[in-house]
Design a protein around this nucleic acid. Structure first.
Lengths: 351, 351
DNA sequence: GGTAGGGCTGTGAGCGCTAACAATGGTCGT
DNA sequence: ACGACCATTGTTAGCGCTCACAGCCCTACC
C-alpha cells in the first residue's frame, strides 16, 4: 500500500529507514537496540520511519557480525509420544522466554548415524547449542564420542557422561510405584519393562528390583515390551496365563500386582487381563508410569508415576543458556534431577 | 587437537581453508557448492583442508548474501496432543528432505495476539515462510488480516481464506462414522462435539448432522466438550442419565449410539458409561475420531476415524516450498484435502 | 574565557560469504 | 601459426548489520 515501486519490492534496509528519518544508519541501529544515548525526538522519528516502512532487522546480517545466531537445536525421537512432546513444548517456551529460537530435528530411530546426521543438520544452520533427548544407550555413547564445538545438554541421558544433563529420577519413580504395590499387601510385584537399550527402562527395572530385594520379596523375571500398547497387551496375555496357572497352587510369585514401565503398555496389559476375565484391581493390581492425560480415564483409572516434562524442558534450556553465557563449552556433568510423583488411582487400590 | 593456537579458537573461515589448500576462497566456495568446473585434484585438496580444519560454512554469511535462510516456521497449539504432534513431526521431516530447517513456536492459547506474537518471533529470525496449524476460528480470521511478506500455509484452517492450506476432510470423517452407526441399525446417533470455535469441531458436527438428515433420522442436540477426556466423561454422565430415562418408554431419540468428536473424549465417555453400568457396545455403540495409538486398546477397542497426520505435514511443506520456488507470495487458496478412513473396532459392533 | 566532559550523532571498517567478471593457460580448427 | 573457445582459477564488490572511534555542540567548572 505504501510502497508502489517498479522494483520487485526489496525488503527495506536500515539505510532506508535512516534516510527516511533523516539520520544515519547507526542511529537506527541504536534505536533498535535500545541504546540510551539517543534523543527522544530522534528515537520517535526513527520509530515512525520503521513503522512506515515495515522495517525488520535482517537477522542474518546481525548474526554475521555479532556471531550469535540466538538459535538452539533440539534432537528428539518419538515426538508423537506424550513425554517427548511435552518436553519439547516446555523447552521451546523456555527458550523463547530467554530470547532464543529453537529448531528441532526428529529422529525415526536412535542410531548413532541418525543422531550424527541430525546434529550435523543443526550445525549447518548455526545453532549455538543443542539439547539432545536421548534416553537410549547407543545414542548416548555416540554423543560422547562426538566432541562438538558447542554446548550440549542431554535429557534422560543417564549420569555416566561428562555432559550436562537433566533427567527425572526414574529409579525413584519405580520405587514409589513398587513399594506402593507392596504396601497394599502384595507378596511381590511383577514388571513389564521397556526396551532394554533405553536408559529409562533400565532405571525403572533397577528401582523396581531393589525395592523388592530390600523388602525381601521374590524378584520375578521382568517381561519386556517396547512402550507400545500392543507389547503391553502381549505381556498381559503371558501374565494372564500365569495367573490362571498360579491359582491352582499359591506361590510367593503369584501375579497379583504388576508395575508396568509406561502407561501405554499398562493400557495394553489391562486389555489382555480384561479379555482373560481377570479383574483389575480385584485380582491384579496395576501401576504405570508417565501419567498421560488418558490414564485417569482408563478402565479402571490407572495408578501411575507422574513426570513433570515441562520442568525437564525448562531445566534443560536453563542449563544450556547458562553454559552459553559463561562461555563454557563443556561443563563436566552439571546435572539436574527432577523428582517424579506417585499418582494413586483405582487400578492399584483394593477398597 | 589439530589447532593449538593461543587465540580462543575462532571457527575456521573459508579463507583459512583456502590458504591451507593453496587456492582462493572462491574455489573453496565452488567445491562446497558442487560447482562442476573444479579440477578433481583441486577438489580433493580442498576437501582435505576442510576436513583437517573441521570447517563449516557460516550459515549467516551465506544467508546474508543469498537472501535465503532456508528456514521455515511453524506455529502450533497443543503440541502435546497426538494430532498436532504427528503433524509437526511429518512436517519437520518433509522440510528436512527439502533442505529446509524448521523452527516451531507453540502457543498456549489461540488468541489473535498470541498468534501475532508467534509470527513476529518467527519473522525476526528470518523464516522464508510459515505453516500455521490453526484449527480455530478466531486465529484464522486474525491470520487473514495480517498480510505477511512471506508465504503462509494453513493446516485445518478451513476453506474460507484466500490462503493455501491443507486439511483432512473432517466432514467426510464425520459422515463415515455416523453412517456406520446408522448402518448398524441405530435409529439415530448422538454427538459429543468439540469446542464450537474450532473449525474441526464444526465440520464434524456438520457432517454428522447432514448424514442424519439425509437418512431421515432425528437430530438430537449435540453435547459440547473441549477435547479432554474429562469433558467426555461429563458428557457421558449426562448421556447416561438419558439412557436410563429413555429406557422407560422407547423414543426415536434413545441414546443407543454416540459419535464423539475425538478419541480422548470418547475415552471419558466410556468411563462414564461404565460407571453408570452401561455396556459398550451392548447398550450404546460409540465411535471416536483421530485413531490415537491407544484407541485400539480401550475397553472396548474404539471404532474411530483415522487421520493421516504425517501426510498433512508433508503436504503443507510441499505447498509452502512450491510457493517459495515459484515466488508467489500469496497463491490464492490452493488447497489439499486428505481423506480420512473409518477404522471399525468393537465399540460399535453388535456381534 | 578557556578547557574538560558528557550527550548525541556520524563515519569507516569489516563480519564470511557468493555472484559477476577478469585472467590464465591449454586445446582445437583452419 | 593464430585466434576462438573452454576449463579452471583469481579478483573485486557488496549483502545489511554492529563495533570502534571520531566529531559536534552544549554545559560546567575553575
Amino acid at each position: 500500500m505504501s510502497q508502489t515501486g517498479a522494483h520487485p519490492r526489496r525488503a527495506p534496509t536500515m539505510a532506508d529507514v535512516a534516510q527516511l528519518a533523516g539520520v544515519s544508519h547507526q542511529t537506527v541501529s541504536r534505536v533498535l537496540s535500545n541504546h540510551p544515548n539517543v534523543r527522544d525526538t530522534t528515537r520517535a522519528e526513527v520509530q515512525r520511519a520503521i513503522e512506515q516502512l515495515g522495517y525488520r532487522r535482517n537477522s542474518s546480517a546481525r548474526a554475521l557480525v555479532t556471531r550469535r545466531t540466538l538459535t538452539l537445536g533440539v534432537v528428539a525421537c518419538n515426538p508423537t509420544l506424550f513425554g517427548p512432546a511435552s518436553t519439547l513444548f516446555g523447552l521451546e517456551e523456555a527458550a523463547r522466554d530467554e530470547g532464543y529460537m529453537v529448531s528441532a530435528v526428529t529422529l525415526r530411530r536412535y542410531t548413532a548415524k541418525a543422531l550424527e546426521e541430525a546434529i550435523d543438520h543443526l550445525s549447518d544452520w548455526g545453532v549455538e547449542g543443542i539439547v539432545v533427548i536421548v534416553p537410549h544407550r547407543e545414542a548416548v555413547a555416540a554423543l560422547a564420542e562426538l566432541r562438538l564445538p558447542f554446548p550440549v545438554v542431554t535429557v534422560e541421558g543417564g549420569h555416566s557422561l561428562p555432559i550436562a544433563g537433566v533427567s527425572v529420577d526414574q529409579e525413584l519413580g519405580a520405587r514409589l510405584a513398587t513399594s506402593h504395590l507392596l504396601g497394599a499387601g502384595h507378596r511381590t510385584v511383577w514388571h513389564v519393562a521397556g526396551p532394554p537399550d533405553w536408559l529409562e527402562a533400565e532405571a525403572r527395572v533397577s528401582g523396581w528390583r531393589s525395592t523388592l530385594e530390600e523388602a525381601g520379596a521374590e524378584v520375578p523375571p521382568p517381561l519386556v515390551g517396547d512402550w507400545t500398547p500392543l507389547s503391553g497387551y502381549r505381556a498381559g496375555q503371558e501374565l494372564a496365563g500365569r495367573v490362571a496357572a498360579g491359582s491352582a497352587r499359591r506361590t510367593s510369585a503369584d501375579v497379583t500386582a504388576v508395575f508396568v514401565a509406561n502407561d501405554q503398555m499398562a493400557l495394553g496389559l489391562m486389555r489382555a487381563f480384561r479379555e482373560a476375565g481377570l479383574s483389575v484391581p480385584g485380582q491384579v493390581a496395576i501401576a504405570g508410569f508417565d501419567d498421560i492425560p488418558e490414564a485417569e480415564f482408563f478402565a479402571p483409572p490407572l495408578t501411575t508415576v507422574r513426570q513433570d516434562f515441562a520442568a525437564v524442558g525448562q531445566a534443560s534450556i536453563r542449563l544450556l543458556v547458562s553454559q552459553l553465557e559463561t562461555g563454557a563449552t563443556s561443563r563436566d556433568g552439571e546435572r539436574v534431577v527432577i523428582e517424579p510423583r506417585l499418582i494413586v488411582r483405582r487400578s492399584s487400590t483394593t477398597s
